[in-house]
Amino acid sequence: MRYRVIVQRLYHEKLAFISLVYLLFLVVLSIIAPLIVPYDPEAQDLTNVMAAPNWAHWFGTDELGRDIFTRLLLGGQAAIQAGMIGILIPLFIGVPLGIISGYVGGVIDDIFMRVVDAMLSFPAILLALAITGALGVSLWNAMIAIGIIFTPQFARLARGQTLQVRREPYVEAAKISGSGASWIMLKHILPNIASPIIVQASFSFSLAILVEASLSFLGMGAQSPQISWGGMLHQAYSMIFVNPLMMFFPGLAILVSVLAGNFLGDGLRIAIDPKIKRT
């Protein structure tokens, strides 16, 4: 019921709503991309390399004559997957840990928070890089690394929110009526701290896309023949003196997707709590 109100309010946050539509569109597109792309992403046409955008190749071709539009659509898969994993791992590991830590309190909570603080003092990209390096360079490992680096943030958020609702009457009531701790956390605490976590997830989604692109750009993510926007930019960078136009569309795709996640987060925040000032 409350969520219907939030969705309604979100509808009135035009920018956020458009962003949501865009992101959903992107998800669908990345699923059906292999079925609809006009060319084989690996099909080289050496007679037609580095073509400018034209009717046959909407976004032009790369230095091997491959269709950039095709590769861009398929590259969306990596971005969406990174975004998904970047929020699923924290949701399934960070949030429960945070709730438990906040609910149990005491020494466990103290130690837990110190660890979280320590994890957060690592720069996100560097830690993602190091974890990928340790696990072995691959797109899959890069995504796992992204999930790991976002986990402490969600844990801290969930813990803070839990501390706020822990003393609420409905939690106390459930305790008195003899509900078990895990039941209380699942049924009474989690639903009541969900909103800020959803907002955070929206921001993390776009950050995950950004980190995945960065890692793939550095050659630490997608490995050929896997396609990713960051990887396409890496390729474009090596051609920068020859064909600077090649970098345009992959970069734009990243930018727009990251912006969409940020706008959605801003809009969700306002939809959930309209008292928040716009900036």
Binding site: S206, L210, A213, S214, F217, G230, L233, A236, Y237, I240, P244, M247, P250, G251, I254, L255, V258, L259, N262
Partner: peptide
Amino acid sequence: AIPNFWLAMI
């Protein structure tokens, strides 16, 4: 929101 390496390339 802009990827810093893309900005760099531009």
